[in-house]
Amino acid sequence: MNDQINELQLKIERLENEISFKNGLISILSHDSKEMFGNFLRLIEALEDNIIGEEDFFKLLPQVKSDAQKNLQTIKDSTAWLKTQYGDFQIKPVKIMVIDLFYHFEEKYAVKLKEKNIKFYFKGDPNAFLITDRFLLESALDKIFNNSIKYSWSGQDIYLEQVTKGDQVMLCVVDFGMGMNEKSLSTIFTYGNPIFLGTAGEKGVGLSLKIVKNFVSLMHGNIDIISSESKGTTVSLFFT
């Protein structure tokens, strides 16, 4: 009886999380798209009405580009999430070598790592593996790793750490960047948390970790975040 109650409570919690996520996603897409297109339209109209000259117009284009990049990332994140919600999407457990994940992200982010002079390391058992859905796991780690680069200062290290304890496998992405204070950390999965700029001015929408939590839940795993302002952040994923 207790097992049935616990299972029902977990299902209710997942449904509540799904509803919250959907509502938040709709809000972000609506607000950001309206803001970006509205600003771009006003800029063009100002040029047409000779309120600003061509020189000032081109000076403002980098800001427009930055806003467009932020919105494109939102669409990419939303598309990744939508793949798990419609059609015939099902969890497809496969054997995934952890070291292969490390090599994958090392190659994918080679340019960004070089631009910020960041070294990426692996810690753990090179023979360790997980049996879970590849799309969900790679998507979740991709968003975590992207954040680590965004909020790391030039010359700092990032590493992917693997730890096995009994039947549990833990994957941690560790950085020594900007970090967060307790107040920011406590609201990281809500839609009222502030949006921070990366160390090179990179913009985000605060959506990535919410998708990570959603994906980890679909894999029946857990997520834990430890962060300290100016000291860095550790995002840990737990799987059994």
Rank of each mutant, 00 (worst) to 15 (best):
N2V: 10
D3K: 12
Q4V: 06
I5A: 08
I5M: 13
I5K: 11
N6A: 12
E7K: 11
K11D: 11
E13Y: 06
R14C: 12
E18I: 13
K22C: 07
N23Q: 08
G24M: 05
I26S: 15
L29I: 09
L29P: 00
G38W: 06
F40T: 03
L41K: 14
L41M: 10
R42H: 11
I44K: 03
I44Q: 01
E45W: 00
E45C: 02
L47V: 05
L47D: 00
I51R: 06
I51Y: 00
G53M: 02
L61I: 15
V64K: 01
S66P: 12
D67R: 06
K70G: 04
L72W: 10
I75L: 06
K76A: 13
T79Q: 13
A80V: 15
A80R: 15
A80I: 14
A80M: 13
W81P: 01
Q85N: 13
Q85F: 09
Y86D: 03
G87F: 05
I91L: 14
K95G: 03
I96L: 01
I96T: 06
D100K: 00
H104R: 12
E106N: 14
E107I: 08
A110S: 14
V111W: 10
K112F: 03
K114P: 06
K119H: 09
F122H: 05
F122E: 04
G124L: 05
G124F: 01
F129V: 12
L130R: 09
T132D: 05
F135A: 11
F135Y: 13
L136N: 00
S139Q: 03
F145T: 02
F145H: 08
N146E: 14
K150N: 05
K150P: 07
D157E: 14
I158L: 03
Y159F: 12
Q162L: 02
Q162N: 08
K165Q: 13
G166K: 02
D167K: 09
Q168W: 07
Q168L: 11
V169L: 12
C172I: 04
C172Y: 00
V174S: 02
D175T: 01
N181Q: 11
E182F: 06
K183L: 10
L185G: 10
S186F: 01
N193H: 15
A200G: 10
G201H: 10
K203R: 15
G204S: 15
V205D: 01
S208A: 08
S208Q: 00
S208L: 00
I211L: 07
N214Q: 15
V216F: 06
S217Q: 14
M219F: 07
N222K: 15
I223S: 00
S228W: 09
S230Q: 13
G232D: 09
G232Y: 02
T233P: 00
T233N: 05
T234S: 03
V235N: 03
L237P: 04
F238G: 09
F239R: 00
T240L: 11
